[in-house]
Design a protein around this nucleic acid. Structure first.
Length: 290
DNA sequence: CACTTGACCTGTCCGC
DNA sequence: TGCGGACAGGTCAAGT
């Protein structure tokens, strides 16, 4: 899925365009995409106005005026694409081909607004979901109880960051970094990128990682996440932001999906291996397995 | 409890 | 061009 920077990019784009819109209709394909009862959707969503779009880790919350919120997880291939009335068939619109094609066979939920504009939830692999819940109960969700700190939170210190890994001593540093209860929002791209930055081999056991290395990893993670947000996230063939556009972080990636190319720091050839069940990219010279 | 692996899905790419 | 298998930016439910 989109990781933290991609979800944040979607949040920012949506915020600009859907706050104040009134929901007129909701359609969905299967109960898995949107499990709420039709009666609840009608009562709490239809006729409600969007009041805010928030993010925690990789999850979005779309708050509405009825006191309910839509909780959305895009997982691997989910997209939220907003299409304004004026976007369709617009000559020279940068995303003509996508916006004019929606809905398509990957469209799972369609929110229609009174204004005539539409928000599509597309998801090729169908791992993603959205569900309606009272805004006041968001904090009681299991996910919210378990999820770790936001890596970009100002008050988050390197010492606190290192302490979050205490529970995961015997596993690899990459597996721990991907654990949402340790730190929020890290996925496969930014795990590889930040470990490269800190010169830590992803397969290193957590217990072998020194305090100074945790400190480096913390600052690298924050830097890479901030850069990715600034660049609008990373794009493979399925990720797009709320306007259907792609992000450019991959132009700045140092190791991710760069196997066979030169390490930008030492020139050695980047390798791809498997760690924590995920494709993993390293510089074999900068990142030594101790 | 911590840890690993398979499952959830569809599409694409790569080798035969 | 067809077919099989591996793989894809995530997380759970199961196993040990």
């Amino acid at each position: 899925m989109p990781e933290l920077p991609e979800v944040e990019t979607v949040r920012r784009g949506l915020r600009e365009r859907i706050i104040g819109r009134v929901i007129a209709a909701v359609e969905h394909d299967t109960a898995k995409a949107f499990p709420n009862a039709a009666a609840d959707v009608a009562q709490f969503l239809i006729g409600a106005e969007i009041t805010d779009v928030r993010r925690r880790a990789k999850v979005l919350f779309i708050d509405v005026s009825s006191g309910y919120s839509l909780m959305v997880h895009l997982k691997m291939t989910g997209q939220l694409v907003y299409v304004g009335l004026g976007d369709r068939f617009g000559a020279g619109h940068p995303n003509d081909s996508l916006v004019n094609a929606l809905p398509d066979k990957s469209t799972r939920v369609t929110l229609s607004f009174k204004s005539g504009d539409t928000l599509f939830f597309n998801d090729q692999r169908k791992f993603g979901w959205m569900k309606l819940l009272p805004t006041s109960e968001i904090e009681n969700e299991d996910f919210m109880q378990r999820v770790g700190p936001e890596p970009l939170a100002e008050a988050f210190t390197p010492e606190q960051f290192a302490a979050r890994f205490a529970r995961r001593q015997k596993t690899s540093i990459k597996a721990a970094l991907l654990d949402q209860s340790v730190v929020a929002g890290v996925g496969n791209i930014y795990a590889d990128e930040s470990l490269w930055g800190a010169r830590i081999h992803p397969a290193r056991r957590v217990e072998t990682v020194a305090d100074g290395e945790f400190s480096n990893l913390f600052s690298e993670l924050r830097e890479v996440m901030q850069l990715a947000i600034d660049k609008g996230g990373s794009s493979n063939h399925t990720y797009v932001n709320a306007e259907g556009k792609k992000g450019s972080y991959m132009d700045f990636a140092r190791v991710f999906r760069r196997e066979g190319l030169a390490c930008p720091r030492c020139g050695a050839t980047i390798e791809k291996l498997r760690v924590a069940g995920r494709g993993t990219h390293i510089c074999p010279v900068c990142q030594v397995l101790k």
